[in-house]
Amino acid sequence: MMRYTTYFAAICSVLLISTGCTKEVEIDIPGHVEQLVIDGVIETGQPPIVLISKSKEVYAPTDLNAFLTGFVSGATVTVSDGTNTVELEEICSGTLTQAQQELFAQAIGITPSEIANYDLCAYLSLDPDIFGQVGKTYSLNVEFEGETYTAETRILNPTPLDAVWWKAEDDAPNHGYSWCTLSDPANQFDSYKWEVKRMASDADGNPEDDNFTETYNPIFNDEFFDGLTFDFFYENPFAYSSTLPENERWLFEYEDTVVIKLSKMDRNVYEFMEKKYLQLATAGNPFATPTNIPTNISGGALGIWAGYSPSFDTLICVP
């Protein structure tokens, strides 16, 4: 759902930055405190994966090395579903099979080929007993440098789409948005995350996309449509290049095949995600309030312990 404040802030900011003079300045920004960052996820049918790093001062180096060496090891991480409690293993990328590397790469957000260049460590368990199951609440416990951090997340019942289809635009007959019908459950808070992955192969015969990609503004909740059945569309996040003709940007092409992943999440995860995307849209903008992103992790850490229940649909872009 569009956020008018985000729009307004963005418009004002664009106008002012484009009409005003902008220059880089060195200014004292006091107040940095190093905090542990826990980025954990558990999905239906998937193992829990937790990455742990530390926050950096704003002027700290931001090269790839700084990012990839920012992950910490030596933490004790356990996940419990109330019945099973499993300590996650600290697994480094160099020791993983190719399939595991792909999973790991997806969690970190880089390609499997790049992960081979770094010995990155994460915490995960391949014990099927602790793989995500719908309806279960998962507790996370992290102990590091004498501190304990805890969080809970729940994997909710998924809400699959009723239908998906592709519709060509009037001014671009071979291009169109992905359309769908959603029946939102009534009288409860529901929140959704929309991601897509293209299924075509590249010239080498490899899948065009390794990971699912979030669309622009991928998070929404049902505050406006609780209990309604309605049609809506989403754009193609891969088709934003300025080299494309203007009327083809953000559209899927005729005969594209994509998998749509629509995930449900609990309210705490939604609030993290909502504020995260708000911050990404407005960070530093004087027309918006500075937004610290809330967390569901207690103990003073940043980040999120997120449970998702995705449902998948395959869209073949033909009329």
Binding site: I27, D28, I29, P30, G31, H32, V33, E34, Q35, V37, D39, V41, S53, K54, S55, K56, E57, V58, A60, T62, F67, G70, I108, G109, I110, K276, Q279, L280, A283, G284, P286, P290, T291, N292, I293, L302, G303, I304
Partner: peptide, 24 residues
């Protein structure tokens, strides 16, 4: 004004934390 004091990465997005209000 309030500027970010720290950054961190979550799910490949760079995020900021803000420190003391109006400290800059």
């Amino acid at each position: 004004l309030t500027l970010p004091t720290s950054w961190y990465v979550q799910d490949q997005d760079l995020l900021f934390t803000y420190g003391q209000r109006n400290s800059t």
